[in-house]
Write a protein that binds this DNA or RNA. Structure first.
Length: 910
RNA sequence: GGGCGAUUAGCUCAGUUGGUUAGAGCGCAACGUUGACAUCGUUGAGGUCGGUGGUUCGAAUCCACUAUCGCCCACCA
């Protein structure tokens, strides 16, 4: 092994992520560091990765979840738990099918033209070609998942899990087939679930149309004759936003309490265009306040009307084809596209004098999430899962605390959704996906074979042509990927999993369904904790989208700033459940921090000399008591230990971002800015001083790298390899991720040292401040007199004071009192300490007086507040003793400061 | 209509169970290459924590109301 000096000089002057990341990742993966330890009897920690779409492109959402999950996983692994992070990809039925269809279109053909078998062959081909891309990109992010256990939702074993689940739910009566009104996406030509419909406020028209109330039979053939009035005894006017559905009307409903229409209830109206007689019925659905108070009932094309028709036992008339053209039931409009038909119907109504009014109206319109067009409620035969029994289990799991949601306000959202759940339409009229495992005989019988049974064959036997909703298979993910339905070793050891980390946007789509299916099929909630993160938005809070042109590509960012910079920024900018506005400037500061770690390591290593870290190099409480460590040594160790305790607490309470922020602050503002500077002075001392200083530098830096490793895996590993030279104290680790995570040790807290060093820092900053104010040349050594009751402490720190405040050693006077107070000196007062910096000929008496007077005023106001507080009996009586005592102590310190400030103001005034 | 979240420095955001004079990064101003780091250092300016009221000895933090922005669910003939 090269010595430390050589190692430090091998380190590049700046951290260069592109030289490090790929090499380290390959080394980690090839050495099996991501696989759960088998030589450890601690409880395992398991996390299932939310599987990205197999043909997806990496975006910030992926970067976010990988960062958080990798933080959790690396932390748990370092804490000594056998840790498994199961990766994989999702076949993403609609998304993938659309991509392949687009490809076929570019080739001048189509899905239908090539046929189902060929289409599936082409889609698999596509998957093989592009499916590895996303997993490569996850590797770029540093994801420490166990690739030997990677799964794809269409893998044979997962397909078997799907069939097992389907069979069980079917046999238990929780899956049924039925003709229901579903959300139909005309562009996709498939049914979609309620969740796949998004609502958008739009300005539309509401038309008022009058229907003739007719007694007796209607003579056909008069549509277009303009002779409606002659046949009508009266009219009833309905309001609608969708006049093209008129031909599907089966009734007109009025509110039973609506006096305007009492006399019409039970009468018949004539439906224009198709000349059907439909009744006027009384139903609570009609709101007298809305529109005209009379509503046309179109059960095959409206969810509310569907309910009315069931109540009123009205027939259903479906007037639409699957491509959203009208069918033969629409009479003269058959074959027209739905919106073209709307225009034509309106024109015809107007001509016939039946269009009463056209009013502007604002309403939310259902849009197909993936298709982008207006959803059409359509009557069709589909497969459904009966949700109530499943929802009850999922609700109970959270209510009883078996599973906990973080942040917990999402528990209410979860409850509300599950308490109002509707049956789940799971069939999709697609080709890419798990084909519904049901066969039909020619006489209409259904066969649902077991998962391991052969597919039914025989004359006239056909399989259901549809596939299952993608989320059906991903709902099994946490256990199907571990071998379920078989009781495999992995399933026994790693299920239920530990934490489910994902975005709150798929709480219903995925998380709730995993909870339901997991509870039902395995008898356990699939995870004990659900951690939800927010969406990554641009710095102005807008959704990242290609149309806004505000998309930040993680791959570009990683190439420019390094993976650690991106990860650190995402981790430290985020709070659980809260959206994150990503400011690219912050990524730069993440990069800077990685570089800081690198350079501080380079510095420390370069000062090791022939010293080598080994077990004895670790500073413990015992060490600190038995060897002459300095106040600064004890200070930084104490601060470091407090950091470790804070990080421990924050990580355990899922506040990962705050843990990283605090660590950064410590490393930069305390360790690098102060201890490293102090160490430079200490390293000029005798051999023993040097040795002890190296130990402290090593202990704190090595521990800080381990603290940060979950956040910044690459730079910490690389720096750690250099720093330790692979000689680690607490394990025989080859990688930092195998070294333990720092554990709190309160015995190293040293409040005296912390206070002392704080005073030293304040004095140094005070003198620097004077220097800056009087524009003293940075290189120049100045004189100073420090008047303080703590001369002993300050004498110990003499070298430090001189070095960091740039004082001339011969002219630094440490005294307990001062006989002659020179006006030709600038003054700093810190509590009971006075510092005089003589600057002959430079001192502006008026300015100095003004500065100190201002400080005096502040101090006096402060003291006054405290005196008032302490004079208040209720405060001294009710507040905790420690708080009151602290108030007293602070007051006396402030009073000491006031006395000195007064004196000095007087000095300058004479 | 029901629910949730946000509002803290010019910008982007932290702030554990209420407890000194509210923090960071970026940006801004001035100075500075002394051997880890200019992806840096030193010093500084900058906030009555959206508003009102309340609880409390004490509120950015808890409660009520309110304003603005955003999101979710439901409804919308």
């Amino acid at each position: 092994m090269p010595d430390s000096f050589q190692r430090s000089s091998e380190m590049a002057k700046a951290y260069e992520p592109q030289l490090v990341e790929e090499r380290l990742y390959e080394w980690w993966e090839q050495n099996g560091f991501f696989q759960p330890s088998t030589t450890n009897d601690k409880s395992p920690f398991v996390l299932s990765m939310p599987p990205p779409n197999v043909t997806g492109e990496l975006h910030m959402g992926h970067a976010m979840f990988v960062t958080l999950e990798d933080v959790i996983v690396r932390w748990q692994r370092m804490c000594g738990h056998p840790t498994l992070w199961v990766p994989g990809t999702d076949h993403a039925g609609i998304a993938t099918q659309l991509q392949v269809e687009r490809m076929l279109m570019r080739e001048g053909t189509s899905r239908v033209a090539v046929g189902r078998d060929e289409f599936l062959r082409r889609t698999w081909e596509w998957k093989e070609e592009f499916g590895g891309k996303i997993t490569q990109q996850l590797r770029r992010l540093g994801a420490s998942c166990d690739w030997s256990r990677e799964h794809f939702t269409l893998d044979p074993d997962l397909s078997r899990a799907v069939r097992t689940a389907f069979k069980k739910l079917y046999d238990d009566g929780l899956i049924y087939r039925g003709t229901r009104l579903v959300n139909w996406s005309p562009n996709l030509q498939t049914a979609v679930s309620d969740l796949e419909v998004e609502y958008e406020e739009r300005d539309v028209n509401m038309w008022q149309i009058r229907y003739p109330v007719v007694d007796g039979a209607w003579q056909a053939g008069t549509w277009g004759s303009g002779s409606w009035a002659a046949h009508a005894t009266a009219f009833i006017t309905v309001a609608t936003t969708r006049p093209e559905t008129l031909m599907g009307d089966v009734a007109v409903a009025v509110n039973p309490s609506d006096e305007r229409y009492q006399h019409l209830i039970g009468k018949q109206v004539l439906l224009p265009a198709v000349h059907r007689m439909i009744p006027i019925v009384a139903d609570e659905h009609a709101d007298p306040e809305f529109g005209t108070g009379a509503v046309k009932i179109t059960p095959a094309h409206d969810h509310n009307d569907y309910a009315v028709a069931q109540r009123q036992q009205l027939p259903m008339v479906n007037i639409m084809n699957r491509d959203a053209t009208l069918n033969e039931q629409a009479g003269p409009y058959a074959g027209m596209e739905r919106f073209a038909a709307r225009k034509q119907v309106l024109a015809d109504l107007e001509r016939e004098g039946l269009l009463v009014a056209t009013l502007p109206h604002r309403m939310s319109v259902g849009i197909s999430q993936r298709g982008g067009e207006v959803i059409e409620p359509l009557l069709s035969e589909q497969w459904f899962v009966k949700m109530q029994p499943l929802a009850d289990l999922a609700l109970a799991a959270v209510r009883t605390g078996q599973t906990r949601i973080i942040p917990d306000n999402f528990e209410r959202v979860y409850y509300h959704w599950l308490e109002n759940i509707q049956d789940w339409c799971i069939s999709r009229q697609l080709w890419w996906g798990h084909r519904i495992p049901v066969w039909y005989t020619s006489d209409g019988q259904m066969i649902v074979p077991g998962a391991d049974d052969p597919d039914p064959v025989g004359p006239g036997i056909t399989q259901d042509p549809d596939v299952l909703d993608t989320w059906f298979s991903s709902g099994l993910w946490p256990f199907s990927t571990l071998g379920w339905p078989d009781q495999t070793a992995d399933l026994k050891r790693f299920y239920p999993t530990s934490v489910m980390e994902t975005g709150y946007d798929i709480l219903f789509f995925w998380v709730a369904r995993m909870m339901m299916l997991g509870c039902y099929l395995t008898g356990h909630a699939p995870f004990h904790t659900i951690y939800l993160h927010g969406l990554v938005r641009d710095k102005d809070g807008r959704k990242m989208s290609k149309t806004y042109g505000n998309v930040i590509n993680p791959l570009d960012i990683m190439a420019q700033y390094g993976t650690d910079a991106l990860r650190f920024t995402l981790a430290t900018s985020s709070t659980p459940g809260q959206d994150l506005n990503l400011n690219p400037e912050r990524i730069e500061s993440g990069r800077n921090f990685a570089n800081k770690l690198w350079n501080v390591t380079r510095f420390v290593l370069g000062r090791f000399g022939d010293w080598k870290p080994d077990a004895s190099a670790i500073v413990t409480g015992h060490c600190l008591l038995n060897y002459p460590y300095t106040v600064a040594d004890r200070w930084i160790m104490s601060r470091y230990q407090r950091l470790v305790a804070d990080v421990d607490r924050l990580m355990k309470s899922y506040n990962y971002g705050e843990a990283a922020r605090q660590t950064q602050e410590f490393v930069w503002n305390e360790f690098a800015d102060w201890y490293v500077e102090i160490a430079k002075a200490q390293l000029e001392g005798d051999d023993r001083r040097q040795l002890l200083t190296r130990e402290v530098l090593y202990t704190v830096l090595e521990g800080s790298l381990r603290l940060l490793h979950p956040f910044m895996p690459f730079v910490t590993e690389e720096a750690w390899q250099y720093l330790t030279g692979r000689m680690v104290h607490d394990t025989a680790a080859d990688s930092i991720m195998q070294a333990g995570y720092p554990q709190p040790d309160a015995s190293l807290y040293d409040e005296t040292a912390e206070r002392s060093l704080q005073l030293v820092r304040d004095i140094i900053v005070g003198i620097r401040n004077i220097r800056a104010e009087y524009k003293v040349e940075p290189a120049k050594f100045v004189a100073a007199t420090i008047v303080s009751p703590h001369v002993d402490l300050l004498a110990e720190q003499r070298a430090l004071l001189c070095r960091l405040a740039r004082l001339s050693n011969d002219d630094l006077h440490l005294v307990t009192a001062l006989a002659v107070r020179s006006k030709a000196a600038a003054t700093v007062v810190i509590g009971d300490v006075e510092i005089f910096v003589p600057l002959a000929g430079l001192i502006d008496l008026a300015a100095e007086r003004q500065r100190l007077t201002k400080e005096l005023a502040n101090a006096e106001a402060d003291a006054e507040r405290r005196r008032t507080r302490l004079a208040d009996d209720t405060f001294t009586g009710k507040a905790p003793v420690a708080i009151v005592q602290r108030e007293r102590d602070t007051l006396s310190a402030v009073e000491a400061q006031i006395a000195r400030l007064r004196q000095r103001v007087a000095d300058y005034s004479e």
